[in-house]
Design a binder for these strands. Structure first.
Lengths: 206, 206
DNA sequence: CGCATTTTTGCAGTCAGTGCAAATATAGAA
DNA sequence: TTCTATATTTGCACTGACTGCAAAAATGCG
């Protein structure tokens, strides 16, 4: 998936520090509880100064749950759309965007557990998801403009929003099942499962 | 809708203080920007001590965007389901839950404007929405258990999630249109519009 | 090595949010 | 009205997140 872009020493160290901070954050929350996961404790455990923590994350929650700022471009959706239908493309983009945090299955599993124990951490993650889906909906809208089935301009925006919401829910379910099953299968299988789920909903509701 | 339950002086004052704080919070954000909307400034403007603010809200964001802790019970869904199909019931419950904040159209419009200007306030609101929809999905699941069309037990949970997500998106769109049109029409019309939107998606995707 | 750029760090400061106990206000009974 | 139980407000002290700034350290490169 992601090509290793031959980083220099500087960037390698940066990536390592970030990973250390994320490990430290999740580790402390798991072992000692969210209350003890202060910026001081996290940065001490990662062997950097507290001030440095904020060179890597906007807030504590981002380090714990691994929230990143990602942008969904129209090009990303179009690339997927060349090889499949709308639902499959939307699911594909969503999985691409989540790939970084899904990459390390172990860390992801830890985060799922933490999120279960401390639902108040969800806020940031949910807001991020909403931003992603909003961007995705904008891209889908312009994709629909090329499709004769969606010729009614007025209804395009609400439809795009709903379809994206539907796919988002399907992806969420597919990932949840993937975690429940031990995070063993491939991303491709998550993709197929999510697309299947979205289609089932459509079939059962009509 | 809501009957005026003849509150005593104590409860009337409480409701008034809460409303004052919400007005103060939104007003300061609008006029002077989010940076100046400190707890001190808000409570001074509402004529209570800063400490009192936290007797009414868990955090600043809740006062600004009017976030409330609401629970969705299975009974709420069943009540709606006696007079309509699944989609209509889900939309109905969602609108019921949002009624308190939709009640004052003027305040709601102000909040929409604030949310546009300061998207970082979204976190709490989104998390609340997610909690509500999760609760709704649980209720819908048990409702589906009575319906022969959803006899496959395994698929019930993911389907319930997806249907709720779809309806949530439709309600969101309907409310957005309602705001754009000047918040003039009735809640019933929002309901009909949302149900129509959800059905359109299903029709167009198959 | 020496210079330009990035990154880390310390420091001082603002503000959100909490626990506690004293002061104040209200409801309801006597 | 007065007295009492209970709910609410308030002040105070405290922890901890987060920011701006400028100095110090690390890195990239000629």
């Amino acid at each position: 998936m992601g090509s290793p872009p031959a980083l220099g020493l500087r960037d390698r160290k940066r990536a390592e520090t970030r990973a250390n901070l994320e490990r430290a954050a999740t580790g402390i929350v798991l072992r000692h509880g969210l209350d003890h996961a202060t910026i001081d404790a996290i940065s001490e455990s990662a062997d950097v100064s507290p001030r440095t923590f904020f060179n890597y994350f906007d807030c504590k929650e981002d380090a714990i749950l691994g929230t990143q700022n990602v942008e969904v471009t129209e090009e990303m959706v179009r690339a997927h759309h060349r090889e499949g239908d709308l639902i499959s493309s939307i699911v594909g983009v969503l999985l691409d965007v989540m790939a970084p945090t899904l990459g390390s299955a172990a860390l992801h599993a830890v985060r799922v557990q933490i999120a279960r124990e401390y639902p108040e951490l969800f806020s940031r993650k949910m807001a991020q998801m909403t931003r992603i889906m909003d961007g995705l909906a904008v891209a889908v809208r312009s994709l629909m403009a090329d499709d004769p089935r969606f010729s009614d301009e007025e209804s395009r925006a609400p439809l795009a929003d709903s379809i994206v919401a539907l796919c988002g829910s399907a992806v969420r379910t597919a990932i949840r099942e993937w975690v429940a099953a031990g995070s063993t299968t491939t991303v491709l299988e998550i993709h197929e499962r999510a697309v299947g789920l979205a289609r089932d909903v459509v079939a059962l509701l009509r």
